[in-house]
């Protein structure tokens, strides 16, 4: 499949600070790609390089088949961009702002701005300085979506949006994908884009530590397991401990012949059920995998891990 974005060995330094230390990824046409990382991981830097707002120190970048460095305004008219730190003029109504952006990017289909605004519940005739942060973010989204660009590059698109609007945004992503548009999103929380993204890259300290589908991430994520069985805790623990991916947390004797066990589990559920086959299970709780925690572990923002490099073993 044709790639809308191809990035190889992209590096960017600001003075001595290395914001990106050589990342590779590609985004096929019509797909939704998310990049997750803590603040300062390099998400915004990568996106700015794609738009030629900043220039890479090293590496190859191709966007819509062209090097952004040499791309003319025609290429950028085919892209919709939402900056991570969205700044808007203050003394201007949303409508006039959109008119201006339509004039320099366009063409925008008649009624499209109003349609997006009503979808997001945004008033276009108020001055932007009187708008809340969430409503400013909606203006940012409207200007990115309004000309139905082939490629949308959205830096922290859900920031400032309430849960209802986050859901509306996911609907807009779904519609865009349905029209064959390609989306590149970033967030520091996987929960905000896991429903939208086909693939996710996890960025930490300027390097991609993992690229995977959301399903793959979920499969590898640890879940909390609680078992209550009509046996003493030692027998229960002995039955489960050999399981790959099981980390025993606690056992407890809850009375004569009743034991409880708590564990973290990231292995296969089939194997777990198999291991429990010989035990009389009274209750079983296997929680939804905690993707957020899985990602946190991957990018090592847990205390004390911040300075680890990708190649080094993590605790």
């Amino acid at each position: 499949m044709e790639n809308v974005i191809e990035v190889q060995g992209l590096a960017k330094s600001f003075g001595h600070r290395e914001a990106l230390r050589g990342i590779d990824f590609e985004i096929p046409r019509g797909s939704v790609f998310g990049v997750i990382g803590p603040n300062g991981a390099g998400k915004t830097t990568a996106m700015r390089c794609l738009l030629d707002i900043i220039r890479p120190t090293a590496g190859q970048v191709r966007v819509l088949g062209t090097d952004p460095r040499r791309a003319g305004p025609e290429i950028r008219r085919r892209i919709g961009y939402l900056p991570g730190e969205l700044a808007l003029e203050r003394r201007i109504t949303g409508r006039r702002m959109m008119d201006h952006f339509a004039a320099i990017s366009g063409p925008v289909a008649p009624g499209r701005v109003e349609e997006l605004a009503s979808r997001l519940g945004l008033e276009l005739d108020r001055q932007s300085r009187k708008l809340s942060k969430g409503n400013k973010q909606k203006l940012g989204l409207v200007q990115a979506f309004m000309h139905d660009p082939e490629l949308l590059i959205l830096d922290e698109p859900t920031s400032g949006l309430d849960p209802l609007m986050q859901r509306e945004f996911l609907g807009m992503v779904e519609d865009a994908r349905g029209r064959g548009q390609t989306l590149f999103l970033s967030s520091h929380l996987i929960g905000e884009i896991e429903q939208a993204a086909d693939r996710v890259a996890i960025l930490r300290d300027g390097l991609i530590v993992r690229t995977a589908t959301v399903q793959e991430l979920r499969a590898g994520a640890r879940r909390r397991l609680r078992v209550l069985a009509a046996t003493d805790p030692e027998t229960l623990a002995a039955a489960l401990e050999p399981l790959p991916g099981l980390e025993l947390l606690d056992t407890e004797k809850l009375g004569e012949g009743v034991g409880a066990l708590e564990a973290r589990f990231s292995g296969e559920v089939g194997a777990l059920l198999h291991a429990l086959a010989g035990v009389e299970v009274l209750d079983l709780v296997l929680e939804e995998p905690d993707l957020e925690e899985a990602v946190l572990e991957l990018y090592g923002s847990l205390p004390g891990n911040g300075r680890h490099r990708a190649g080094e073993p993590r605790p």
Partner: peptide, 9 residues
């Protein structure tokens, strides 16, 4: 930044 991301040079 946002102006330059649109169709201008």
């Amino acid at each position: 930044e946002l102006t330059l991301a649109h169709g201008v040079t």
